[in-house]
Design a binder for these strands. Sequence first.
DNA 1: CATTTTGAATACTGACTAGTAGATTTATCA
DNA 2: TGATAAATCTACTAGTCAGTATTCAAAATG
Lengths: 230, 230
Amino acid sequence: MADSVQRKPRARRAAEDSSPRSGERESMRDLVSQLKRDRIVSAAVDLFYRQGYAGTTLDEVAKALGMTKPFIYQYFGSKNDLLAEICSRAIRHANDALNRLLSQQGSPGDKLSAIVREFILSVLNNQANAVIYSREETELAPKDREMIRQLRRDFDRRVVALLEEGIARGEFAIADVRVASFAIASMVGWAPVWFRAGGRLTKEEAADRMAALALSMVAVKRTATEGPRA
Amino acid sequence: MADSVQRKPRARRAAEDSSPRSGERESMRDLVSQLKRDRIVSAAVDLFYRQGYAGTTLDEVAKALGMTKPFIYQYFGSKNDLLAEICSRAIRHANDALNRLLSQQGSPGDKLSAIVREFILSVLNNQANAVIYSREETELAPKDREMIRQLRRDFDRRVVALLEEGIARGEFAIADVRVASFAIASMVGWAPVWFRAGGRLTKEEAADRMAALALSMVAVKRTATEGPRA
DNA sequence: CATTTTGAATACTGACTAGTAGATTTATCA
DNA sequence: TGATAAATCTACTAGTCAGTATTCAAAATG
């Protein structure tokens, strides 16, 4: 994960300080590089999403950018590197979302709603990335694959912890916490399958409603035989 | 969909009744054909599941069978036909499950549990098929793709109808029925992602617990202010 | 046992595409 | 402006793989 800026295009960095403004120049070059990398990634995401990784040639990606194939090779070592970059971006997005949420506070119920809501939003806002990495998992190098597994494990673990906290506080009633965490992950992971932009619901509405459903799945149900609680 | 027996290997069916037992002979031949087709499909499912469709060559499939590529072409017109057959089998399985369930009766809650339970079982029992068809959707010919979409729509529609019935009867309380149906479909569709054979749970246990969760997601929560119902 | 039919294998083609070497253009800077 | 370096392109190679024409083998048939 780390930095991922990886500015490849600098085989020989001649006289580093040949002019007073070489620092600015350097950073300008890096910015331009980064911009180009971004454009490549974005075109690739679009095509991989629609046609699949194997079904897309680098010539097509280059054409979509109005460039030619060697242009891509200036910035990525191989087609697989490009895929790995896409997947690692998707993971970074997801991790960001998760970290943002962990710093929040509130009741387990509030936290769960927020996590489901935000995660679904993150997945929908990076729909193509998310779909690509779940679809092309087999194409990835083992190392990158492991990153994805790790992220899923993280998510499940944190949800499990949250569910247990909720149970301890009497807010949740759940027979099998791990299965419940999988059910919740399912709602998040499956969202791109059914959500259609421009449909009946906005992303925010969809996320809100799913979050409400997730909550009602685990929230304690007070039966009529019990008195009111708290 | 239809029959799908499609016995290709019979370009010229010479003197149909050349012997008194030609009927038996014919059916024997068909059985043998069918058996071989099944073996091919099964080897392909295994490899496509592990390596992806594009990442698997027909030579590999043939090798797994101890045969060579032209053997496959005797029974399937193209690699894509083979994929389509796999997907259509997955769909048939799913449709069978759905139809079996529709003939059952009981309260909406019972029906919903049964549907979720059986569908998850069906998906898990044909895990490779299910994964392949959801992963390789982009590789399919439009016609086959449409079949899959249709199946999903069917599933959603029937679940929606069931949820509405439940609401009418006062058993369910759901803010947005369509989103709820998507949530339920998510649990079914995502099951192969997390379920590991030989893990903590059997398929049946996993299916049971998911079904219980789905039910608790939509079941009416009697607040303490209401009296017991019915 | 000769003959036809069917099933499968060998050995090929043709298309495609990831990746690259070298030419060429464009930017940089003295 | 002329020299140098970077960015991009043209044109190619090498390998892969779906699909096939042809040959060989083995049943079935009479």
